[in-house]
Every structure is written in C-alpha cells, then in structure tokens.
C-alpha cells in the first residue's frame, strides 16, 4: 500500500522543557482510517498541527504523498484537508462565500465544485443555511461547513481533530460514511478522538499517545487483541505510568 503520511521521529517542544511530542513515528497508508487517541494534553493536537504544516516542529520529518512538509509545504497542503476541533471560520462570510473561497484556493473547477457543494451540503443538511452568515451558525453547523469545505478538493489525506464533537448523530453517521468512501477511493484519514467506541468501529489502525510518546500503534486487531479498546487503552496507560 502506498504511504500517504509518514511521520518520522517528530519532536516538538514548547519553551525549554515541555516536550509535547517526543520522537513520534508512524505511517498512514492509502485506505487507512487511522485513529489517534490519548489523554488530554498528550500531544495529539500538536502532532496534527505539525503534520498539516501549521506548527513548526523542532526535529524529525513529515512526508505527505512523498513531499516534505518542511521543504515543500504548499505541495503537501494541496493534497491535505485539516479540520480542527473548534473550527474558527470567518463570521463575516456566508457559508457559500466561504466554500467559494476554499474552492478558489484549491483550484476546484466550478462545475465540480457545484456538484460537491450540493452533495455534501445536502448530506449534512446545511444547504438551507449556506446563504446565512457563518457568525449565525451553531458550533455543529460550523463543523459541518468545515467538513464540506474540506471535501471540495477530494484530498488525499484528511486530518481531523475530534471530528465528532458537536456533530448530531445523523451527521456523525454520514461523516463515517464519507470516510469509508474516501478510503475506498484511495485516500486516508488520520484523526484524533476521545470516543473510543467510534475509533474501535471505524478505524483499521490505531495509535495511542501519552506524554508525547507513542506507546502503542498498529492494526486495531493487533493492538486490541481480544479485549475492548477501552480496556486496552486503560491498561496501556497504566503500564506507562511514570
């Protein structure tokens, strides 16, 4: 399977002492739905932001579709979509203006753009709100708009930070469907979550991070074994308690 994302010995330190990410390495291949789990403050968001080129990191390398995020960030970003846990979109734009803006930046041709906007806006039931200002949207609506915008350019890699927080059950179900469709088409999903049930049912690969270090990773069947992911997660955390 072709690699879509390769993180190699990633290190990110805040200040002089706090190592938020400590020598982390993992690989996400085409077709993977890769779950990234850990406690609060474990380093998940720092890892995701470093991967997407938003946060400069101290050492290590990140490659997306063969391009280095350090040396060729624009090429990496062209094939990536990132949805943060709390999408801060532009309150002063309407939903459709925001989608046009993202579509223009990614060079999505008009007809294709219209088709995808129609498809995903209807899927997430925000088509009736795209003419309103984003400032009037609820958190969940902003999340849905962010997801719709991320799908406009059919990214090779989708990176999401807690994507299911704030989504209604129907939207969460639809999002999982979208993930599966994307992976069937050769893309990859890399997302962090606290909801272990979702990770268990959706992901084919899992990584567990604690205090910036990867303490478990691999196929979900290998990591979980015969137990539930929750039980394994608690056990692994205890084993690595300092």
């Amino acid at each position: 399977m072709n690699e879509v994302l390769r993180i190699s010995h990633l290190v990110k330190t805040y200040g002089k002492e706090k190592r938020a990410v400590d020598d982390l390495s993992l690989t996400v291949c085409e077709g993977d739905i890769y779950g990234f789990i850990g406690q609060n403050g474990a380093g998940k968001t720092t890892t995701l932001r470093s991967v997407t080129g938003i946060l400069p990191f101290d050492s290590g390398e990140v490659y997306i579709d063969g391009n280095s995020v350090r040396t060729d960030p624009v090429a990496c970003k062209k094939v990536t979509a990132y949805i943060p846990d709390n999408p801060e979109l532009y309150d002063f734009l309407t939903g459709i203006q925001y989608l046009n803006y993202i579509g223009d930046v990614f060079g999505v041709e008009r007809a294709l753009r219209a088709e995808r906007i129609s498809k995903y806006a209807k899927m997430f039931r925000i088509d009736g709100d795209l003419g309103s200002l984003i400032g009037a949207y609820s958190h969940g609506m902003k999340q849905k708009l962010a997801v719709t915008s991320a799908l406009l350019h059919a990214p090779k890699l989708m990176v999401l930070d807690e994507p299911f927080v704030g989504l209604d059950p129907e939207a969460a179900f639809k999002l999982k469907q979208v993930f599966r469709e994307m992976c069937d088409a050769g893309s990859a999903i890399f997302f962090s979550t606290h909801v272990l049930d979702v990770a268990e049912k959706l992901c084919n690969k899992i990584a567990i991070i604690k205090n910036g270090k990867l303490i478990a990773d691999g196929d979900i069947e290998q990591v979980r074994g015969d137990e539930s992911l929750e039980a394994v997660f608690m056990e692994v955390l205890e084993r690595h308690e300092e």
């Binding site: 753009r113 003419g131 309103s132 009037a136």
Partner: peptide, 16 residues
C-alpha cells in the same frame, strides 16, 4: 449579534 433567519443558496452563487 442576531443574524436573522436561514438563507439557502442558488446555483449561480457558486463562483470560481
């Protein structure tokens, strides 16, 4: 801060 009711979009609103 109130932004009024819902407003949808039309096909011609999709521009490139």
């Amino acid at each position: 801060t109130a932004r009024g009711g819902r407003a949808g979009y039309r096909a011609k609103d999709v521009k490139s």
